[in-house]
Simulated assay, not measured.
Amino acid sequence: MSYVLGLTGSIGMGKSTTAGFFRDAGVPVWDADAAVHRLYAKGGAAVGPIGDICPDATAIGKVDRAALKDWIARDASALARIEAIVHPLVAKDRADFLSRNADAPLVVLDIPLLFETGGAEKMDGVLVVSVDAEEQRRRVLERATMTPAMLESILARQTSDAEKRAKADFVIETYEMEEARAEVQALIAKLNEGAHA
């Protein structure tokens, strides 16, 4: 039975890079965002059902994310209807991943909204990656598609970093990435050791 480690952190905290450190060390990592991309891609399991409730949101056999955002902005019921389709499909994708990797001593579930969706309780442990608000803002606003207003909107929907840190079993700060990598390796060794205890 695998130790299931939930990996989370607010936008700009270094979560994707940290997930990469686990992958580099040979730990199986499931990425919630990547699962949604697969479901929305050509041939993905969400394409047909989303097309049924909003034909404008599918084009050339895949989900048009921009059209989906427009629909959510226009229709207050849209998000709940989309989530009713997508959440069970994501849960199945995650269950399939866990089944495929059942022999691994450690698996990581990379879930941006782990606390917000109540998923933390289903984990054996939770790792939060973090930096201070100033560094977070600097990183996020370096992205060409991001504006200060967009960042504020995202942060308003996320559990605060302080609350995430308080609820976490493990916290890794990602100011220096090589230090963060070393902390990941130490955590893997500790959790693997626990699995064999």
Rank of each mutant, 00 (worst) to 15 (best):
M1P: 09
G9C: 05
G9H: 01
S10M: 02
S16T: 14
T17H: 06
T18A: 06
F21V: 15
V27N: 11
P28A: 04
A32D: 11
D33N: 14
G43Q: 04
G44T: 00
G51S: 06
D52P: 00
I53R: 10
A59S: 09
A59P: 00
I60C: 11
I60S: 15
I60L: 08
K62M: 07
K62A: 06
A67G: 01
L68W: 07
D70T: 08
R74L: 09
I82C: 11
H87W: 09
A91P: 03
D93H: 02
D93E: 06
A95D: 05
A104C: 13
I111L: 14
L114R: 08
G119A: 05
A120M: 01
A120G: 08
M123G: 04
D124G: 15
G125Q: 08
V129K: 08
S130Q: 12
D132K: 11
A133W: 11
E134V: 06
E135F: 02
Q136K: 10
R138G: 03
E142N: 14
T147W: 14
P148E: 00
M150K: 11
L151M: 07
S153Q: 12
L155N: 11
A156Q: 08
R157I: 01
S160Q: 13
D161Q: 06
D161I: 02
I172N: 00
I172Y: 12
E173P: 03
A182Q: 13
Q185C: 14
L187R: 00
L187A: 02
I188M: 04
K190D: 05
L191S: 00
